[in-house]
Design a protein around this nucleic acid. Structure first.
Length: 261
DNA sequence: CTGTTTGTTTGCCG
DNA sequence: TCGGCAAACAAACA
């Protein structure tokens, strides 16, 4: 479930497992997930991962020889590091065989994600017009990117050119805590509301990372904790929250606690 | 068989 | 240029 917190957990996982080991071999079991040239990726054999960095939902891995690999996880991607004697994960699409008897697999069931080489982080993020990461963006830039937008606030928060890293669950969570109904037009919101959104965004990301991005471990007053059922109970007023659709995305928002502006 | 899914891109229409 | 919308990508699940 790769929104910003999940990808941050993947990054830390990589740092604790697959760094600083020679890449002995690289297996591409499904070429579609490779962005750019297959051959370029194959060139990582003999190289090693030295450091990682995250920007929104994207993970960048730098190698000893100076290459940069990007990973995006789509809706169902994750990393798995395991002993080579164990069977490969079912949906492993790219498998790095590491010196030391372990493998690192890029696993992606639905294959919406991509990985590949990029000249550098900057050229990748600018080609996608990615705004600064949600954990790092300044208040000023966040306000500027939102201000004057005529689209609804949920769609604006999901827009990676406003800030990078917010996904469907976190957008719902931010708006739930700020008591703003998701269909509110962005241009109808006040500076105070922008400030509230900014503060909650960082807080929710931080909390999600602290619980290892495990949904069930979120605080009880977080609606994301209750998954994507057709209806859930509002932790605040206990009324039923029905699933609706906003900007073609499944949305949970409380009609009583959240106000449309 | 139908409808749903944590994401992104593309193309169409107004 | 902006915004809304649907489709496409692919596969599992209820």
């Amino acid at each position: 479930m790769p929104e910003l917190p999940e990808v941050e957990i993947f990054r830390r996982y990589l740092d604790q497992t697959a760094l600083n080991q020679r890449i002995l071999d690289l297996q591409i079991t499904h070429p579609k997930v490779v962005g750019g040239q297959q051959e370029d990726l194959k060139g990582l054999v003999g190289d090693q991962f030295n450091s990682s960095q995250r920007w929104g939902k994207n993970l960048f891995i730098k190698t000893l020889s100076g290459k940069t690999m990007f990973m995006h996880f789509g809706m169902t991607g994750y990393l798995e590091y395991y002993n080579s004697s164990v069977e490969d994960p079912k949906y492993a699409r790219v498998i790095f065989e590491m010196d030391g008897g372990y493998k690192l697999a890029y696993v992606s069931k639905r294959m919406f994600g991509r990985l590949g080489l990029t000249p550098d982080v900057e050229s990748y993020t600018s080609s996608k017009s990615l705004a600064p990461d949600a954990m790092a963006i300044s208040k000023g830039e966040f306000f500027r990117n939102l201000s004057g937008k005529k689209k609804n606030i949920k769609t604006a928060l999901l827009d990676q050119t406003v800030t990078a890293g917010i996904g469907n669950w976190i957008a719902d969570e931010i708006l739930y805590h700020t008591r703003i109904y998701p269909t509110s037009l962005t241009c109808n919101l006040s500076e105070e509301q922008f400030a509230d959104i900014y503060r909650r965004m960082k807080e929710i990301m931080q909390v999600a990372i602290e619980v290892d991005a495990t949904r069930e471990a979120l605080p009880e007053h977080y609606i994301t904790r209750y998954g994507r059922k057709t209806s859930i109970e509002c932790p605040n007023c206990h009324e039923t929250i029905e699933r609706t659709e906003v900007g073609s995305r499944g949305t949970f928002a409380c009609q009583h606690c959240q106000v449309k502006f």
